[in-house]
């Protein structure tokens, strides 16, 4: 797999591309503590956006509210033109199926094989019991899952249990699972926080390459300011539930980004 960076690949600007994610006046409180205070954000198709901010600034809550893994108290989230805050049941699941979500601790099912975990990525768009375990799946689905594994460079580990993989490999399997969704958006909640620096670079590199080659919209949280500058087109800084910074990554330095943590 070629993980070489090509930073010259063009990213769309807000004014020219269609909007993929629109977040309008999102509010969320835990008890009496407000986490998101009427936050607005627009992300065009194909743009890579890094969310930065100190612990408790609302990054993870914003990502989860965007897919309604956490219900926002008020506000709207519009994904590819569809207001998902109004959806329920099968229609909400269908909307979620187009968003690949990668978690900090990969959240793979530990007792199952790598291939079964990747196959689960198709459960949203195709709710079939044959996707529960790789032994039941159709050849077509198995081949697609193998192709997703090849793209993250782990096809040789398809039959292994995920507990036999390293942290970096597990995170790449989680990315393969997200690819199996055939997503238009990928969201990642601190995807390299539990990885060593080298594995972290590999995973971020993979995100970058995939988002560019597939024209995927990428929204990721990170505390690695270098990653925000290197792999995102745009950096959004959160502080106390509001956006304090929203700038193209090419026009800001890591030192300037540190200011958001003050």
């Amino acid at each position: 797999m070629n993980l070489a960076l090509n930073m010259n690949q063009a990213a769309p600007s807000i004014s020219t591309a269609e909007l993929e994610i629109e977040i309008r006046e999102i509010r969320k409180s835990y008890g009496e503590t407000p986490i998101l205070k009427g936050l607005n954000l627009e992300i065009p198709k194909g743009q890579a956006v890094a969310l930065i901010g100190s612990n408790g600034s609302g990054k993870s809550t914003l990502l989860r509210c965007t897919t309604r893994l956490i219900e926002p108290d008020s506000g709207e989230v519009i994904l590819h033109g569809q207001n998902i805050t109004k959806l329920t049941g099968a229609r909400l699941r269908e909307a979620r199926s187009k968003i690949g979500f990668v978690f900090q601790h990969h959240n793979l099912v530990p007792r199952l094989s790598v291939l079964s975990n990747v196959l689960h990525g198709a459960l949203g768009r195709k709710p079939s019991a044959r996707l529960w375990f790789q032994s039941l799946a159709t050849n077509l689905d198995r081949e697609e899952a193998m192709y997703c594994l090849e793209r993250v460079g782990l096809a040789q580990f398809a039959a292994r249990r995920v507990t036999q993989l390293s942290g970096g490999q597990s995170q790449r399997v989680a990315i393969a699972r997200a690819l199996m969704q055939r997503p238009t958006i990928i969201m990642a909640d601190e995807p390299v926080a539990s990885l060593d620096p080298q594995a972290g670079e590999e995973v971020m590199n993979l995100f970058f390459q995939l988002s560019r080659s597939e024209n995927l919209t990428l929204l990721f949280c990170t505390h690695h300011l270098e990653h925000a500058v290197d792999y995102a087109d745009r950096v959004v800084g959160l502080s106390k539930g509001t956006i304090q910074l929203d700038q193209e990554s090419s026009s800001i330095s890591v030192a300037e980004l540190r200011g958001i943590y003050d």
Binding site: L92, N107, H120, L123, P127
Partner: peptide
């Protein structure tokens, strides 16, 4: 965690 991941994928309760 894995349940949250499958919810995010759009998997139904049975899955």
């Amino acid at each position: 965690g894995p349940q949250e991941a499958l919810t995010a994928i759009g998997a139904n309760r049975t899955s």
